[in-house]
Design a protein around this nucleic acid. Sequence first.
RNA 1: UGAUUGGAUUGGGCAGUCGCUGGUGCUUAGCACGAGAGGAAAGUCCGAGCCCCACAGAGCAGGAUGACGGCUAACGGCCGCCGAGGGUGACCUUAGGGAAAGUGCAACAGAGAUAUACCGCCUACGGGUAAGGGUGGAAAGGCGAGGUAAGAGCUCACCAGCACGGUGGAGACAUCGUGGCUAUGUAAACCCCAUCUGGAGCAACACCGACUUGCAUAGGCUUGCUCGGCCGCUUUAAAGCAGAAGGGUGGCUUGAACCGUAUAGCAAUGUACGGUCUAGAUAGAUGAUUGCCUUAAAAGACAGAACUCGGCUUACAGAUCCUAUCACGCU
RNA 2: GGAGAAGUACCCAAGAGGCCGAAGGGGCUCCCCUGCUAAGGGAGUAGGUGCAGUAAUGUACGCGGGUGUUCAAAUCACCUCUUCUCCG
Length: 114
Amino acid sequence: MSQAVVLNQNTDFKRLYKKGSSYTNPALVTYLKKNNAGICRIGITSSKKIGNAVERNTSRRKVRAAFQEVYRDHEEELKGYDFVFVCRVRTRFKKSTDIEKVMLEHLKEANIIA
RNA sequence: UGAUUGGAUUGGGCAGUCGCUGGUGCUUAGCACGAGAGGAAAGUCCGAGCCCCACAGAGCAGGAUGACGGCUAACGGCCGCCGAGGGUGACCUUAGGGAAAGUGCAACAGAGAUAUACCGCCUACGGGUAAGGGUGGAAAGGCGAGGUAAGAGCUCACCAGCACGGUGGAGACAUCGUGGCUAUGUAAACCCCAUCUGGAGCAACACCGACUUGCAUAGGCUUGCUCGGCCGCUUUAAAGCAGAAGGGUGGCUUGAACCGUAUAGCAAUGUACGGUCUAGAUAGAUGAUUGCCUUAAAAGACAGAACUCGGCUUACAGAUCCUAUCACGCU
RNA sequence: GGAGAAGUACCCAAGAGGCCGAAGGGGCUCCCCUGCUAAGGGAGUAGGUGCAGUAAUGUACGCGGGUGUUCAAAUCACCUCUUCUCCG
């Protein structure tokens, strides 16, 4: 199983915010867009609004744990897409299994997985 | 039993499964082993290591500290002690040198604010006088007696302050005696004295590969000024030097380290011996989930290392331990 | 990670030890202008909170918060909170 590539350039995030399609939930916001590389790339952000460093780190870890579960089950379907997950204030109070459910709903809305 | 005082500790534990970061070993890109946030990692307020500025030089300016003795690599920190202030007390607070070196400021009120005569008192009508009045944070040491025209340290006793001497102490200082006779406050106003201080910070700095621009009797050497010193001011068409944007590697974790015992010291702390290796990421690693224990409640405080140490300051749910004091009750 | 700057009425702000609830402007209220409104012109009050008072007014606290220096602090010193800027 290969890992997903991490997005870390600010221009990558801006491209998805402008041109990607978005799906929202009180616990998570998802941006996604097709890429030409044929691989899966992800980025996770947590803004200062969420809280201090501990609260931001916890939010990111829970989103990452949820994505790992999703990626293990649907690796072939996710190839060829870029994802940006934006944490919200409520993210850190949820369990990663709850975030996983939200993430699957968003992917179904986008017709990436069945 | 109640109310306090000063200090110390802890900041859930164990196991299974799926994952993350770097280390070691084997072999080959997977497996095995063991490791993986804090008491404040925070604020960046001080001090240092390390590092660059040629050497890190001199003077002025600027900045910091401020009783005394010690500790420390150093400090604006810590310990002890003295003075002052607060508390019934355990104990707490304290930027705590100098105002007779000089300058400034002291609104309003008040007659007058560092020198004065408004009312009053006395008078020989020139003046004298700070006792009484009122104002103010402060009015010429305080209070009593003598004294005087009326008054005044003018004289005396006591108290406070200053100088000198004796005694005790390592010293700040305490205490006793003698002397003359008075000096408003402010230095977290300028200033004076003593001590310390060059600047910049790991986004420092060094190296590697690729990109492109510039090159003069220039410039540069990182606080303000002055002096001194140093590098360089080339060469002839691609070396050398400099600059801009981005990438990689090092710096990067063994250190004034931690733990235990003994010992010197009231203590801070030092010394000796033995043992241990204890995060090094780079969009940034500790999460998810299940069970058991603990608990009133399966966890719920403040909070995430970013070169590293020593302090200070600030935030902090709950729990535990020690020390001393006061009040009440019993013996 | 490191280096700096600023917080004053509802908003923008001046003040840099005493005359300071604190200049000035916007805003607010009233009037003129207009068929009505905006713009423009003129005039004016209070400026926050608590307490006392029918009210006028008085008084205490108040310049992000706290502690100190001083007779006296928006102003000086220290600690702290918030916001903003610069360094790749």
